[in-house]
Amino acid sequence: MRSIIRFIIKNHFTILFVLIELISLLFVINYNSYQRSVFLSSSNHVTGGLYESYSNSTEYLMLKQINNELAQENAYLRSRLPESFKASRDYFNLVFDSLSQQEYVYRAAKVINNSTNKRFNYLTLNKGRNHGLEAEMGVISSKGVVGIVKNISDNYSTVISILNTRLKISAKLKSSGYFGALEWNGGNYQFAHLREIPRHAKVNVGDLIVTSGYSSIFPSDILIGHVEEVTLNQGESFYDIKVKLSVDYKNLSYVEVIGHPLKEEQLELEQETEND
């Protein structure tokens, strides 16, 4: 026993190192579950507050006010567009009732932290649960799709951006309607890759890529980018399409968060069908 204690005291530096290093690596590996504890992410009140006051102090005073109003107004107008309403006024449903209720709601939020230079990029927004945001909501800007809300606290939320190798988005070719999965593979922040488009589809450089609307997160036909380069390897049945993203992640300031009040209903129904 005594010799064990003597051994520990003698090698305490190495033992402590191994211990701390293991704890750190455990953090890295359990990253996702730890992320969920909002405390340690940048939607935390302290870090979020710091980022917000920093971003506020770097912004021109007047510009901020005007931008904010414009973004609010945009969100309001967008939620008045015909596309935001459920198109279900069939011949037997001419009466205006609860079925023709609004399908998507847009809320403006400000980006207070942003990165483009890592493999897993996240954004922080200045709105949270108190403003009606929820996890898994889609985030777009005036130019196109930005990402999906991941963690949420009372006043802040973090967003997985498309520039995150952990995120895949269902996307389709606007012209032909073939759909596949859009993902980013690290590297340049202006380009992502669209896969799973079958080789019999016609793909031209310059074709628009939009959201498919098959997930309950984004409405359909929201711009993602355009085709930059098409490659079809010998013997493969799917294209590898390089997509130039329409959003410039370097200068995001205001975004809109898409709420989908009927999402629960859709998911429930899909779940039920799968279980049968």
């Binding site: 701390i20 690596l25 730890y34 940048s42 890592k118």
Partner: peptide, 14 residues
């Protein structure tokens, strides 16, 4: 904590 990379910087610095 600030850069959402839990554990990476800690293990490298240790």
């Amino acid at each position: 904590i600030f850069s959402n990379t839990l554990g990476m910087h800690a293990s490298a610095t240790v």
